[in-house]
Amino acid sequence: MTVLPYLVAGWLLVVGLWGVITSRQLVHQVVCLTVVQSSTYVLLLAVGYRTGGYAPIVSSSVPPSSPFVDPIVQALALTDVVVEATVVAVLLALTVQAHKRFGTADPDRLGELSG
């Protein structure tokens, strides 16, 4: 199966989005968003993987002129993780404030008390 890793990424994307749409709790919704984002890690790492390739960290034990796994996508995955962490931090801060203001963490009931 040469497409299986890509399908795993697609599955994570769809399942995460389903969670975001149907979630009844803001913290749960943020966690679902991280599932959506983790699909991008799987996709990035799958795109750069090479069968039989070495990890792109060169040392004396790696034979010269051996094939390597793509380091660029791994660096991109690192960027991705950092961005996800920041997004989660801000969203959780917003969740705390929303809970304080409305007394509920159910996204469907957030606006009810304001009017």
């Binding site: 497409v3 795109v47 090479r50 069968t51 060169v58 796994v69």
Partner: peptide
């Protein structure tokens, strides 16, 4: 690209 055969210039970058 089929899994396991990346098309990027990985070796050149390394």
């Amino acid at each position: 690209t089929p899994f396991g055969t990346p098309s990027g210039p990985a070796d050149a970058v390394v």
